[in-house]
Computed example of a mutant assay.
Amino acid sequence: MAQRDPRELGGHWRTAQRIAVHEPDPDLAPWVERLWTASWEYAEPYRQKIVPLPQVHVSVIGVQGPRVVGPRSRHMVRELAGRSSVVGAAFRPGVFRAVAGCAVGALVDRELDVAEVPVLAGAPAWGGTQRSGAAAPEAHHRDLASWLRAHLPAEGPGRAAREAGELVARVAADPTIARVDRLAAAAGLGVRTLQRLFAEHVGPGPKWVIRRYRLQEVVDRLEAGGPVDWADLAATLGYADQGHLSRDFADLFGEPPTWYARRYPAT
């Protein structure tokens, strides 16, 4: 492994970054799970690792206009430098199909200008560019919420979108779901029907979503601190052995779990 940036370790990144998360207003809640802001100040560029979730984001970095960030199939890295901020809206899994005008699977690992997204193409110019990164997070959130409110469909997500989102939530909440056929049976759907539903409304397939949320349990253990019985954890999460767990984790998160653990303060 390459030498680590010491700013990654022991939670030190929190000294240079500020993150705020707000729940959306009720009229946006059917579409948006959370509004978030991150601001930073770095004298030297910092490579920020971002881990994937099955969500579409609309985000604004600095003085740029809004962009649509599709679900990622694996981790990505953004370079943060100087003093700036980003404000974003994390859409609920399953609902962006009605906004995109195409299957969400077509947005995986892509970033688009809003002019390329039918429902948002006619949205008014971004009105929050005058705010600095030092502005209160609530001000950034209000700017983005107002911009979204102008063009999101008034009728809310359809039945298939809601069903897809509920299945993602079931995977996140139930650690016993470790196989696609188990999720399909719980949903009363055939495996291929389930796969089509996810490709249309979620983006990543059900196998990827299951793997992502089971690996989140590894992250939760690491963040909590203390010893981890890796062989037992691998078996609990449905892996044949610790090696398979480590390889899967590294593929999504960019480094093996024991390496990733160093990002958190020791307890």
Score class of each variant (00 low, 15 high):
Ala2Ser: 14
Ala2Cys: 06
Arg4Gln: 14
Arg4Cys: 08
Gly10Trp: 09
Gly11Glu: 14
Trp13Ala: 12
Val21Tyr: 02
His22Ala: 13
Pro24Glu: 08
Pro24Val: 06
Pro24Tyr: 05
Asp25Cys: 01
Pro26Ala: 14
Leu28Glu: 13
Leu28Val: 09
Pro30Thr: 13
Glu33Met: 00
Glu33Thr: 00
Glu33Ser: 01
Arg34Met: 12
Leu35Gln: 08
Leu35Tyr: 12
Ala38Met: 15
Ala43Asn: 04
Glu44Phe: 06
Ile50Leu: 15
Pro52Asp: 04
Pro54Ile: 03
Pro54Gly: 03
Val56Asn: 04
Val60Tyr: 02
Val63Thr: 15
Gln64Thr: 14
Gln64Ser: 15
Gly65Val: 13
Gly65Arg: 14
Pro66His: 09
Ser73Pro: 01
Arg74Ala: 15
Arg74Met: 11
Arg74Cys: 12
Arg78Asn: 13
Leu80Cys: 05
Ser84Asn: 15
Val86Trp: 05
Val87Asn: 04
Val87Ala: 13
Pro93Asn: 09
Gly94Met: 03
Val95Asp: 02
Phe96Trp: 01
Arg97Val: 00
Ala98Glu: 15
Ala100Cys: 02
Val104Trp: 01
Gly105Glu: 09
Ala106Pro: 00
Val114Asp: 11
Glu116Val: 02
Val117Tyr: 06
Pro118His: 11
Pro118Leu: 11
Leu120Ser: 05
Ala125His: 09
Gly127Met: 07
Gln130Val: 07
Ala136Val: 11
His140Lys: 09
Ala145Leu: 07
Ala145Val: 07
Ala145Gln: 09
Trp147Ile: 10
Leu148Gly: 12
Glu155Ile: 05
Ala161Gln: 08
Arg162Asn: 07
Arg162Thr: 14
Arg162Ser: 09
Leu167Glu: 00
Val168Ala: 08
Arg170Asn: 04
Val171Gly: 03
Ala172Gly: 12
Ala173Ser: 14
Pro175Tyr: 03
Thr176Gly: 11
Ile177Asn: 02
Arg179Pro: 02
Val180Ile: 04
Arg182Phe: 01
Leu183Cys: 07
Ala187Ser: 07
Gly188Met: 00
Gln195Val: 03
Phe198Pro: 08
His201Ser: 05
Gly203Met: 00
Gly203Gln: 00
Pro204Asp: 08
Pro206Gly: 09
Pro206Leu: 05
Lys207Glu: 15
Trp208Gly: 01
Val219Gln: 12
Asp220Glu: 15
Asp220Gln: 13
Arg221Ser: 12
Pro227Trp: 11
Val228Lys: 09
Ala234Phe: 03
Ala235Val: 06
Thr236Pro: 00
Gly238Leu: 04
Ala240Trp: 08
Asp241His: 11
Gln242Phe: 02
His244Trp: 11
Leu245Ile: 03
Phe249Arg: 04
Gly254Asp: 12
Pro256Lys: 06
Pro257Val: 05
Pro257Tyr: 04
Pro257Cys: 03
Trp259Ile: 08
Ala261His: 12
Arg262Trp: 13
Arg262Pro: 01
Tyr264Leu: 05
Ala266Asn: 06
Thr267Ala: 13
